[in-house]
Design a protein around this nucleic acid. Sequence first.
DNA 1: GCGTCCAGGTCTACC
DNA 2: GGTAGACCTGGACGC
Length: 293
Amino acid sequence: LQVTLRPPPGFDLIATARSHGWYDLPPFSFDGDSQTLHRVITVGGRAHDLAIRAVRGALRVKVTPDAPAGEVKSQVRVMLRLDEDLSSFYALADDDPKIAWARRRGAGRLLRAPTVYEDVIKMLLTTNCSWSLTRVMVGRLVDKLGDAAPSGGRAFPTPEAMAARDERFYRDEVRTGYRAPHLVRIARDQASGKLALESWRDERDAEALHDRLLELPGIGPYAADNLLRLLGGYGYLGLDSWCRSKLKRLYPRTRDPDRLAERMYRRYGVWRGLAMWLDLTRDWHESTDDPLA
DNA sequence: GCGTCCAGGTCTACC
DNA sequence: GGTAGACCTGGACGC
């Protein structure tokens, strides 16, 4: 099956795919040579391969095996944020020499998973470790519990599949260390209905949502700020060791990157988290090299 | 080959 | 409300 989507004006697939590290974690992968974003999604309990390419202003999605086009389109729209309105952010950025490039480049849409659940689990696996360890932990989780697609790649595990395993499994086999009990609790609460993470996409009160994110086990300020971005709230900076070191590199005269960021992006108000992220990742969009290689 | 450090932090106990 | 210390893993680094 092949489906076609009409992206909004100015949309750029490459800038969206490589907007942050998610493209580097399965079930996403990005092929720089063919400029194709690959992804395994689950539709009707089965794993399907997607290959997403930009062709003459449209998005072409090859789906294997066939799946209902409407369901594929709706998952692609969520992942690529096709329905997000960034016009008021770009209006602010146009006056800022540091970030005015973003509109021209089509940057600003942050890639996300088709489910909030997947984003939460992955964000938890980025905490207190190197990016290479995040990649290893997510890879093992997907390999061991995800359903296989025709390509041999696997879908992200469902909450039910994850809930069926215990803490030992996440310690000894996925090797997530002290994060294991958090994974079990989030998976079981989501599978049982005690948590309803997918409904959080409809929450428009960013502060209330931020508070709820912080209540999740293993999710602290860094992870909550960044998850909120994936839910459409950009008012928090989500500073981590990578951001701080990049801020120091870009602005070597600063001694306190936290204060600098607080001051420098304040004018963006509810968009300040996005403004900072784009400022820090500008070089990712200026080169075809993989920034995470 | 071995020890140390720290990376896209969080939580608890204690002041 | 502020802070020290514990917590898994694996890659980088120095010796």
